[in-house]
Design a binder for these strands. Structure first.
Lengths: 193, 193, 193, 193
DNA sequence: AATGAATGAGCCTTCATTCAT
DNA sequence: AATGAATGAAGGCTCATTCAT
């Protein structure tokens, strides 16, 4: 495409807005990453814009977190899609996307996700995980299965992040999570007492 | 045991102190349950004591949540212990204790636990679940197993509570969680791609 | 006459300018009527122009209210003039013009006038009422008479509007106001203690 | 009474609170009088207390204005009562109370009243004037009479204050207002066209 | 002439915590 | 031990106005 440099050629209007929004999101990320106080004034200042400008693009503070979340979800979905195309099995792909997002090399994303995971008003990553897990849940089965699998995975990842577990980044964790999915799927639903 | 008020500023040797602490905890519970603003002033007022008095027993606001959490953990541990003695298998017993705490009939406990689940500074229920799950994790195995199982269970319960899922209270969920544990334990750790 | 937009930044020689000013005034009226927030940005948006353009025609927010007021005064003056020509006595004509402007069937004008009545910087309707009352105040008499009569009438109307009195629209009120004027004029200025 | 010094002998608790409230009200009055910005922070600062303290006594900014209004109304009612006892006719007494409150020698009260007159949420002086005017409105007559008379008087006073009329303080105005009341009462309600 | 992104002072309010009594 | 008045940093958000394009 003629759009080789990707972010070129936008109308000056759109370009300015886009840049401002990006600056705000970038600032928010950095603040979260540094563990600084996440306030609208602080974010605006760090972004090099006024609070007023910030509020021109985000209706309220939560919206910034939402936008950050949407961004991350998009990145994860993409990563999952690519992995599946490359032949990785879907569950593993979804799991890996989550784990990758949180490993030590991505402090910024991690910070963002931590903030999101804590705010119940911000939609989590559930949908992405659901999608990855879906192929394992047979059509027509009770929704409880999809729910349990996706939340179990997210619960483990969340705990690892929040407890700052050394397991994050170790291949063990990915294996264990895959095993969790496989075991659940294969287990016969016979009852214990 | 050292008592639910372990985190309090002074140990309640006298009955009066004990009564005050109880009143504060009771008030806190009610406020959480009613969805009112959880502020120290509000809690103190509802408890019928002055803020000053509240601070005599709790070093800060978080300590109230800690105490509430300790209380709940004790209740759960007891429930689990009794179930095991009655012949229920340990994993199921631990799972059932968690689910029971959150079902619709216990609004107060649920409110407390919701608050606790949200505050990362308050230790969760992990220990209790760990204990229930322990028998299934063979001695000497990597700690990742205990971690994954307990956090998976808690993750599912937490999500169900926070998303206000209709699954809470349905027997399906208990079954699914038990299956999650059993499947994980039985699955051979063979690798997929 | 010099036009309703006297206070605007530039006189609208061209049709386009006139149309813009009208759109702004129209938007302002609608916003006031709907009880929405009366902000320059909001007015501009509703008018379909940019804030910048708005400021091209009105030096500041108050000027919009001024223009609206001028418009209303013109309408009232005209109504009064016509009534007098038709033989209605001047005081009654002036009173009726005021009351008509505020009755329930004219929500828009009412909203505008309410806003004006509240903003002390905007000249009220005093002049129109003064004019209607003038014939009753004998030449050479103290100005206190004109002042008292016109402000008394406006005070009553203002209170009725602001208190949302059911008297508005009732013929009683017109009668009472006429009586107020007549009684004042006829009363001998003898002193009480 | 044993309470010769009036404001002595209060429990230290009440005394402190009372003093704080008074300081806030006093500060509010002075700020209004000086035409400074009437903000909660400003009021608190001027009162020598923190905003927090201010909010301990007043639920919100408007409440300060309300309190000020209540104070003024009380003062007026008292002045009116005393005048009536001294033989002044009620209408004149009510009128005089209003005018006195606003004459040049009482800048502070005037400022307070201006603020109140502008804020439609704050109950005005209507009740006091109503009371003064009541004796002139015959029992059983239409409420329109009381309404018209009291609002007419207040309208005139309000206009004089807001327009900073030189009539304020002149005996003429009191006479004219009394005449307004007397004329209205005596006028026969015959109809003009 | 028009645009609209940007500004930023400033507003109201909350609430954990302290400390003199 | 208890009281509760006082604190004040901090936060989210609004809106009239400007000015580069």
């Amino acid at each position: 495409m003629s759009d080789a440099t990707t972010n070129a050629r936008r109308s000056p209007r759109q370009g300015r807005s886009k840049a401002t929004v990006d600056a705000i999101l970038e600032a928010a990320t950095r603040i979260l990453e540094a563990g600084e106080t996440f306030t609208t004034n602080h974010v605006a200042e760090r972004a090099g814009v006024s609070v007023g400008t910030l509020y021109q693009y985000f209706p309220d503070k939560a919206a910034i977190l939402h936008a950050l979340g949407a961004r991350e979800r998009a990145v994860m979905a993409e990563a999952t899609r690519i992995a599946i195309e490359a032949g990785v099995d879907p569950a593993r792909a979804a799991i890996r996307a989550q784990l990758t997002a949180f490993d030590g090399r991505h402090a910024a994303r991690r910070a963002v996700l931590e903030a999101i995971l804590r705010d119940p008003a911000v939609p989590g990553m559930a949908d992405e995980v659901d999608a990855g897990v879906a192929p394992f849940v047979r059509e027509g089965e009770r929704p409880v299965h999809a729910f349990v699998l996706s939340r179990a995975i997210m619960g483990v990842v969340r705990a690892a992040v929040l407890e700052d577990s050394p397991l994050l980044g170790a291949p063990d964790l990915e294996e264990a999570l895959v095993r969790l999915v496989r075991g659940y799927v294969e287990a016969s639903p016979k009852r214990s007492k």
